[in-house]
Structures are given as C-alpha cells and as structure tokens.
Simulated scan of single mutants.
Amino acid sequence: MNINNRRSICILITVLIALISGCAGQRTATKSSVVDYLYPQASKTVVQPSIPTLNIPIKVGIAFVPEQSSRSRGVNMWSGVAGGSALTEIHKSNLLEKVANNFRGLDFVSDIEVIPSAYLTAGGGFANLEQIRTIYGIDVVALVSYDQVQFTDEGLWSLTYWTLVGAYVVSGEKNDTSTMLDTAVYDIQSQKMLFRAPGTSNVKGRSTPVNLSEELRQDSIKSFEQATDKMVVNLNAQLQKFKEKIKQNLEQVKVVHREGYSGGGATDPFTMLILMLLAGVLYRLRRRALNSASLS
C-alpha cells in the first residue's frame, strides 16, 4: 500500500470518527416552573402568605403553568435538533381531565374548572391568578408543571447509516425520555400552598434516524401520560392527608361552610341521633296508619 493510499485511509477514518462522535449524543429539555410563574425574578413584590380561609364547598381551577423555551444540545445529521415537548393544548386538556377527576365527587368541592393555557401569562404571578379567580369564580387553583428531558444516542448499528437503506431500516437510535410532573394546589386569596403531588416516568425506545422526530414525539406523550397516572395516585393520597390536616390543625387552615352546605353527609353523633329519632317517629306513624287501614 503506497503512502497516498494510507493517507487517504487515515483521513477517511478521522472524518468518520469525527462525524460519529459529533452526532453520538443529543439532549433536549423542556420545562415549566411554578416558582418562575408565581415568583418572577423581575417582580419586586414580596409575597407573604396568610392563613387560608376555605369556603366549603370550594371551587377549584386546574391549569398548566406557562412553558419555558426548549434547551437542546447536539444536532442529528438526519433530522436536525432532536426532541422537544409534544404536549399540545389537546394533550394538556386530556391530562388535566385526569387530574380534575380526583376533585370531582369530593364532598367539599362544588366545581372544578379546566383552565386553558392562554389565560396564564409567563411570570404572571398571583396577580394573574386573581384575574383567573374573577373570570372563573374559583377559590383554589391546582397548578401543574413539568420537566422533561430526552436523550438520543447512536448505537453500533448507526454505522449502517452510511447506506441509504440502513438509515431507513436500522433502528440504531437509542432514545430515553424522562418526565416529572408536579401539581401544586394554592389558595389564591391567601397565596398559600395547601399541598402538592409529583409523578415521574421514564420511557426507553429505539428508532431509525429518518423517523427519529416522530418517535421522540410519541415517547414524549407516552412519558407524560405515565407520569400523570403516577401523579394522580399521589394526589389521591395527598388529598386524604389534607383532609386530616384540616381536622387536626385548625389554626393553620380556617374552614367556613357556605350557606346551605351540610358537609356532604351527616356524620357527627348529634346529627345522627336526631336522624335516628326522626326515623323512629316516622316508623311509628306508618305502623299506626297501616293498623287503622286494616281495622277499617
């Protein structure tokens, strides 16, 4: 082998190594933050939460906080920058409905409103929540935030990408999608957080470089759905703890019953005694009426 051939082979190997190493790893992160929404850095207002007063039954709103811009590292030679949240307004609405169902049916909740993202402004803070409170007539808001990171690495099979068939057929891209969802429930008037519940998910997949973007979008939605299901389980547990907290720590949360509210059922001993006495009286009146009818 002459010197020119050796030099050509060395240059080719160097170029291949550079291309493979340059495209070997990609990372894309998308997120939304309750802290950034409620306490923007540009605001000089100091938030001092007070003791919340819950007017039972409460009216609850639920919404995703505004999304921040995506951050990406690495470029795929076939599809450009990889990743990015696939969470559209339709997907958000479907996920929020899952969360809202945890509040529906509770005896201390009268209404639950799913609020579109358009009503929340980035860094709007509690001033924005006051506007939403006026529009929807809610007392409490459940703010949902998320943090999703997608990694893409090329395996050994990526060497076949140098053939056109390999780029379309061989699933050499290894995709990893990690998601954390969090629901933080705030009393708007007192600006006090009542409780929170997280949920996490990790989805692993493979794809060809040609359908990488499509696979990443599907993995993104799948990971959001899994994280939502886990968050719902935690939300159920936190709701029960919150109910017990209200009973045991009356100085931390003030509860006021709205006019006509009976607490979703008569459970205290005095009320039960009254109902038992009334039931006994009705039973005796019915027996007398039956006896009178039989005699006549």
Rank of each mutant, 00 (worst) to 15 (best):
V60R: 00
E154Y: 05
S292I: 14
S85N: 08
S110D: 11
T179L: 06
T28L: 08
I51S: 02
G199H: 03
M272P: 04
N202E: 02
R6M: 15
G137M: 02
A29H: 09
Q189N: 12
K254P: 03
E67M: 13
G74D: 07
S190D: 03
Y146I: 06
K174N: 08
G205K: 03
V60E: 02
G172T: 06
A142Y: 00
K247N: 09
D229L: 12
F108R: 02
K247Q: 11
Y37G: 03
Q240P: 02
R104C: 11
N211Q: 06
L38Q: 06
R258I: 14
I20Y: 10
L250F: 01
D182L: 14
F195V: 09
N94D: 12
T200I: 03
L278N: 01
S190T: 04
L96R: 10
F195W: 08
P209V: 13
N249C: 00
V35M: 07
R133P: 01
G264P: 06
K192P: 00
Q226S: 13
L295K: 15
T152P: 07
N291W: 04
S292E: 15
E244W: 02
G74M: 01
T228D: 09
D187F: 13
I246V: 11
Y39Q: 06
A63R: 05
L278M: 04
R7I: 07
T208H: 08
T208L: 05
T179M: 07
K59E: 06
S171I: 02
G25R: 05
V165K: 06
S33Y: 05
F224V: 13
S158G: 10
A42T: 14
S117L: 15
S178Y: 07
A100V: 10
L181T: 03
F195Y: 14
A279G: 01
N55P: 06
A42H: 13
A293D: 10
E214C: 06
G125I: 15
A122S: 10
Q150C: 06
N249W: 00
T152N: 10
Q238N: 12
S190C: 02
I115S: 05
Q191S: 10
N234V: 13
L239Y: 00
G61N: 08
S33A: 12
A293T: 12
I58P: 00
I112S: 08
T30N: 08
G105L: 03
S70V: 09
P198I: 07
G61E: 05
V149M: 11
A122R: 14
F151E: 03
R258L: 11
L19G: 09
R7E: 07
P198R: 05
R286W: 04
W78Q: 15
A184Q: 12
G74Y: 13
A237F: 06
V149Y: 00
A167G: 15
S201W: 00
